[in-house]
């Protein structure tokens, strides 16, 4: 059974300097509130893992919290570049960022192997691309047919942090809408924190709902609106204007730092 904690307690308990941390959510249910709490607690030297480092990781990278990034697509969806991500890679600001880059299929399979506690996943992919020379993949031959395939190593983050719509008082979590790789990230990680829009007495079954039993989760924290400017289907809407606005805010280092200090780091905006 998961502990019901405050967001501050959950992050303090589960995330340490130097950890590999996966904050997942594929355009939907992105755990912004939790990522911001990690920044407020001043965690450093993190290995950040995420298929699509969008605005949240742009913020974490721009604040210098990451030494390494494991990812497959680093853009502001539908808008353009992630300027802080680019600045870190192109100019080493505010610090150099080590990269491990994959394709989406590769990352998804790595998470699935982690959830299954297998050492690697087998897939068709990567062949013929220049990525092979710069990332961790290896050729493997099918023992039954002889087909040439590719192996990708399992992802086993120290901590997975995801956001969901609701949890009950035993810490059972339900999420619905686009499920991304959240379940795989939680099952593959050594520790897990799930933030939810609300705590309810009883989970009401939803079409396509995924329930993650509380006994595979370490901590659940209530964080209403905790996925904004991403969204929690049925509860909050995606703030597309914010994603467009981020392009302007993040373009220059100064405006970025000023924005972060006012909207993320300030005690007044902190969760309890």
């Amino acid at each position: 059974m998961a502990d019901l904690v405050s967001l501050r307690e959950g992050v303090a308990e589960l995330v340490s300097d130097g950890d590999s941390v996966a904050l997942e959510g594929f355009t939907h249910l992105i755990p912004f509130a939790a990522g911001h709490e990690v920044l407020r607690q001043g965690r450093r030297e993190l290995e950040l893992i995420r298929m699509t480092p969008d605005v949240l990781y742009d913020q974490m990278i721009g604040m210098g919290a990451a030494r390494r990034l494991v990812f497959s697509y680093g853009g502001n969806p539908g808008v353009g570049s992630l300027h802080r991500f680019r600045d870190a890679i192109e100019h080493g600001w505010p610090r150099p960022l080590e990269l491990e880059e994959h394709s989406h299929a590769g990352m998804a399979n790595r998470y699935a192997a982690g959830a299954a506690d297998l050492p690697f996943a087998v897939m068709r992919g990567y062949l013929g691309t220049d990525l092979v020379a710069y990332t961790t993949v290896a050729p493997i031959t099918c023992p039954f047919t002889g087909e040439q395939l590719v192996a990708v190593p399992a992802l086993r983050p120290d901590v997975a942090i995801v956001h969901a719509q609701e949890a009950d008082r035993q810490g059972n979590v339900q999420l619905w809408g686009i499920p991304g790789v959240q379940k795989e990230a939680v099952l593959g990680a050594h520790r897990s924190l799930i933030t939810v829009e609300r705590i309810v007495d009883e989970l009401e079954p939803r079409p396509g709902g995924i329930v993650i039993p509380g006994w595979v989760i370490d901590a659940v924290a209530e964080a209403p609106g905790g996925s904004r400017p991403s969204y929690s289907l049925g509860i909050t809407d995606r703030d597309n204007d914010f994603y467009r606005e981020w392009d302007r805010v993040s373009r220059e280092r100064e405006t970025f730092l000023e924005w972060m200090s006012r909207h993320v780091l300030s005690e007044e905006v902190a969760w309890h």
Binding site: F26, T27, H28, M51, P77, G78, V79, H104, A105, M107, A108, N109, Y111, A112, M123, R124, G177, I178, P179, G180, V181, K183, E184, G208, Y231, L233, D237, R238, N240, Y243, R244
Partner: peptide
Amino acid sequence: PLSIGDGELAETADAIVSVPEMFNYWIG
């Protein structure tokens, strides 16, 4: 849609699947 994950896409879809399922069962 602005993003590939806008709410309207999820609300109007015939099926919504996880990313591993998308690549391993549908695209692959």
